[in-house]
Computed example of a mutant assay.
Amino acid sequence: MRCFGSRKGERHVIARPLLPSSVRGAESTGACPEGGAPVNDGLCPEGERTLRGAGERRRADFRGGRACARAAPAALGVPPVPLPRDHGGSPLWPAGLTGSITHCQGYRAAIAAGTADFSALGIDAEAHRALPRGVLDRIVSGPAERERLRELGAARPGAHWKTVLFSAKEALYKTWWPLTREPLDFDGMTVFPTSGTAGDSGSFTASPWPPGPGSPPLHGRWLIRKEMILTALALSARYDLNPQFTPPARF
Rank of each mutant, 00 (worst) to 15 (best):
C3E: 05
C3W: 08
F4P: 08
S6E: 07
R7C: 07
G9R: 15
E10Y: 11
E10D: 14
R11K: 15
H12Q: 14
L18W: 04
G25I: 08
A26E: 06
E27Q: 08
G36K: 08
A37S: 13
G42C: 09
G42T: 10
E46G: 14
E48G: 11
T50D: 12
T50C: 12
A60D: 06
A69K: 15
R70Q: 15
P73C: 14
R85H: 01
A95M: 10
T98M: 01
G99L: 00
I101L: 07
G106Y: 06
G106N: 06
G106M: 06
I111N: 11
A112T: 05
A113F: 03
D117T: 12
D117Y: 02
S119F: 00
L121N: 00
A125Q: 05
A125P: 06
E126D: 03
H128P: 05
H128E: 10
P132V: 04
R133Y: 02
P157G: 09
A159C: 06
L165H: 09
S167Q: 01
E170L: 03
L172A: 04
K174I: 02
L179F: 01
L184W: 02
F186V: 04
D187Q: 10
G188V: 03
G196W: 06
G199F: 12
G202I: 10
G202V: 11
S203P: 02
S203V: 08
F204H: 01
P213C: 01
P213R: 10
H219V: 05
I224F: 04
I229M: 10
L230M: 02
N242I: 00
T246H: 12
A249Y: 01
